Simulated scan of single mutants.
Amino acid sequence: MPPLHSVSVAGAVVREDGRILAIRRADNGHWEPPGGVLEPSEDIEAGVRREIREETGLHVRVGPLTGVYKNMKAHVVALVFRCAPASGAPHLTDETTGIDWLTPDEIEARMAPAYACRLLDALTPGTPPAIRVHDGRDLL
């Protein structure tokens, strides 16, 4: 039987000043875009909104797809969308131990390349979605 794949969704939430929302996950301590596993019966954009709200308390407007990323070791395909804040203020939840609005340089300093690129790829509106593979940390 071929390996099964999990589908994850994440949001590159960009403020008007260009800073991008990032979370420090409670389960592994890593800085990443807010997101998670898409529920089997869930619409993709609804999943993006739910995951961001669950992890940060923030409500967002989901925009265009900015990248497709496959973790070759874990068999996870992640879809990342550029989002804009709609309402609420980010705050810590059971799933986060840190939330911050980062600059591109701060993203590169805090995140593994496999996760930093998900936010950085979303910074240029109007470009085709990036398609990348990684091993859970580094791009391949």
Rank of each mutant, 00 (worst) to 15 (best):
D105A: 07
A84K: 13
P40A: 14
I44L: 05
M72Q: 04
C117F: 04
R49L: 10
G136D: 02
L4P: 00
A109N: 08
L65Y: 03
P64N: 12
V48R: 03
C83T: 08
K73R: 05
I44V: 11
L120C: 06
W31Q: 06
L119H: 10
P125S: 09
P104G: 08
P3L: 15
A46L: 10
E106T: 05
V7M: 11
T103M: 11
V9S: 02
I107V: 15
H5P: 00
A109S: 15
R61L: 13
G63P: 01
T56Q: 06
L119Q: 01
D135Q: 04
R25P: 00
G29I: 12
V7Y: 03
R19H: 13
V76F: 01
C83V: 11
H75Y: 12
H134C: 09
A78F: 01
D100R: 01
E51N: 00
C83I: 12
V9D: 02
G88W: 13
L21W: 03
E45Y: 09
R118Q: 15
G126L: 11
T96V: 05
E108T: 14
A74S: 05
C117A: 08
G67K: 00
R118V: 09
P2M: 13
I44K: 00
S41W: 10
E32F: 07
A89V: 12
D138R: 11
E55S: 01
V62L: 04
E54C: 03
A89H: 15
G47R: 00
A89G: 06
Y69L: 06
V76H: 00
V77A: 05
N28T: 13
T103H: 06
R25H: 05
I107Q: 10
